[in-house]
Nucleic acid binder design. Structure first.
Lengths: 406, 406
DNA sequence: TTGAAAGCGCTAACAG
DNA sequence: CTGTTAGCGCTTTCAA
């Protein structure tokens, strides 16, 4: 990331002798390297095995073929006879050859990898994005390198620049905030897609459809027979605000159902959900909601505990639903109705957008995007015990295989 | 990852005209580029902004300085006058310059990034490693690029080769299995550390001290007053086996406490823990254990639910402890005594090993490791409600801030 | 297939 | 500071 300092890691013969060695010595060196590769040289050079750089030349010598043939074996194997290919493969395995990616890129190769810059690896959504992007990239034969910008705008920009500098085939970013999206990045030298982000500027953006999430949960509440619905969570957070808007969409087209909006409880502390749940449950039965929509799963989990602490039953007395499919919030003893986590789909869609741009560029030349492309990932409801679906076992999801998380 | 095919992404004037254009044209092009940079050229070239490559030369022209000065600004800013630096920074910001990392590396620069290859981003331990490594790398001014090999040995090897090919300053790998560790990688051309892995071969390895984890939990059980301790989990998994060995270490030095080992329950399914917990709780009081050590947290969570289902109280009738600090297993209604997750420390220690190797190489030349370095990360006990510590509230950890996971 | 050669963008060296 | 230059390891091209 940071500018290079100090001596280069790998010193070649030329470098050992200083840059401006007379041509004669250079020739002499290259003659030696024809018969004894530098790698071999190093192996017989002393007791301590020195780390050396194995080049395409070393492999060619070892396999007894021309440099260009090794290059072809690497890049156009169909142009090389199978037996030659075999010899080359053996030689590179023997020497432990790792093609210098820098040189390949510089010489005009294609980088078949995408870069993904995330603000954190501790947010559920970021992890989902990473996994979705990984799956989709792999499916199309691309690699994916992930950078964790650690909630730091400057670091994020540095990784972005770094990825551009490595000629990534494409870049995905989850901006920290609106401010994390620099318009300057709207003209990148590489196809770029912004994830978990909404914009009407030219470019490619993929976001969760928080409003649809709200609509889905509200419709589910009504379908579950709710007559008094309490919706809670702080309106000031954009995502939560959109979810509220979705709930209101449903409210407007529904009669005979009372809605109550409680603008409190932050969004991220289970205990806030707990106190709201407890308070609502302690109301007289006539004023008590029969369905609570928590605008985040963390709040919902707390609410379930609060309701139980107040002596009521979930879903018997009050049904509860979360809204954002946060698997880490499954800590109550009733499985939680919520929205399937959208991050995975966002990651997948992001890679699809990248590939679309790459193909478009191949067809029509490398052009900057002039239009806005905003994808919204369609949410799905996960109906579970807390809203009366399935069995309200006291041990949530006993069959859930979370081996992956061990 | 895959060999380059197809045309290069960025076509320069030379490439547009074919490789072997007469020198005259090449000179002509380079004359143009002195007055009008390629980037600028592109901006005025038409209605559609073409993606172009901004080079160090473009920046030098824009800033009105020499090429070498821009390079110095990048690599040895102390050698450049502040005002010149400012002009250069403005110019590169204006043009959106991203130094070609391939060229920098090829020309002998240092890569200040580490590569980390993980088998998954869904395992708690891998995430902890990623976060620990990231924190430590950042602290020392290094970047970290993470690759998810998706439980695929071949993919893992490809990422490893890729990282070596990009001249990473160092590489961290969490091998999938013993088989994921190729001895060939014991002679890498780049400092390498194996994480969550044990070996006595030459090289650098960092692992969790599963045996110490077992000792800690067993000692805690005894300190908590246990007289009959049941230990369960399948012995066939190496990690679990080491934890059992740790428990036996304590058993050997303890008198008056009965130990019972139940070799069943896999390791990753809460329902297995559930059935073992249920069965033990249904025993007559005289044969019932008063402390259950589950060899994984997933099992422990299930066991708590099973004990409760059998009508007993945790920790009142039976105390329970897990052994591997898996935050995703906190799904019971009693907070779980366990071991602090070791992954974070493993990641940190891995980066420290990398930096140690780099400094050693700087001092003594690049040598292969000839000795075995096996670090074991010291475990910590998290004593909580399930073993009688703290308050056995019915809502576990109400203060737990899991905002990060939203 | 071979051998030779140009050039990717940069760093580091050198003589002004 | 400038301007120039060699060379990093590779890909691609071309003529043999």
């Amino acid at each position: 990331m940071t500018p290079a300092t100090g001596p280069p890691r790998w010193r070649t013969a030329r470098q050992h002798r200083g840059l401006h060695a007379p041509p004669f010595e250079a020739i002499q060196y290259s003659r030696i390297s024809i018969t004894i590769s530098r790698a071999t040289c190093a192996l017989i050079g002393g007791l301590v095995a020195r780390r050396t750089t194995v080049t395409i030349n070393d492999v060619a010598n070892e396999a007894g073929v021309a440099l260009g043939t090794v290059s072809n074996a690497l890049n156009h194997p169909e142009k090389v006879r199978p037996e030659t290919l075999k010899r080359i493969n053996e030689a590179s395995a023997k020497l432990g050859y790792a093609p210098n990616q820098s040189a390949r890129m510089l010489a005009g190769g294609q980088n078949r990898s995408f870069g993904l810059v995330l603000p954190s690896l501790e947010h559920g959504i970021s992890l989902q994005i990473a996994n979705g992007a990984n799956a989709e990239a792999q499916k199309h034969g691309y690699g994916l390198l992930i950078a964790n910008a650690d909630n730091d705008d400057i670091l994020s920009a540095r990784y972005l620049t770094y990825f551009m500098g490595t000629q990534m085939a494409g870049i995905l970013v989850q901006p920290m905030s609106v401010y994390g999206w620099k318009p300057s990045l709207a003209t990148p030298s590489v196809p770029t897609v912004y994830l978990d982000f909404h914009s009407s500027e030219p470019g490619y953006f993929v976001g969760a459809d928080n409003r649809a999430q709200g609509r889905l949960v509200a419709q589910h509440a009504i379908d579950a027979g709710a007559r008094r619905i309490a919706v809670f969570g702080k309106d000031e957070f954009e995502k939560l605000g959109m979810r509220i808007a979705g709930v209101r969409d449903i409210m407007r087209t529904t009669t005979g159902v009372a809605f109550e909006f409680i603008d409190e409880g932050a969004w991220n502390l289970a205990r806030d959900g707990y106190s709201v749940g407890y308070r609502l449950a302690k109301r007289p039965a006539s004023e008590r909601p029969d369905f609570i929509i928590a605008l985040s799963d963390v709040l919902a989990t707390g609410a379930v505990a609060g309701i139980q602490a107040a002596g009521l039953n979930v879903p018997g007395d009050i049904k509860v639903a979360g809204s954002d499919g946060n698997p880490l919030a499954w800590s109550g003893n009733v499985s939680l109705t919520t929205i399937a986590p959208p991050g995975y789909e966002i990651g997948r869609k992001g890679v699809q957008y990248l590939i679309a741009q790459i193909e478009e560029n191949r067809r029509a030349g490398n052009a900057m995007p002039t239009e806005n492309h905003q994808a919204l990932v369609r949410p799905f409801l996960l109906a579970r015990a807390s809203s009366g679906e399935g069995n309200a076992t006291e041990f949530a999801d006993p069959d859930l295989d979370i081996s992956g998380y061990l």
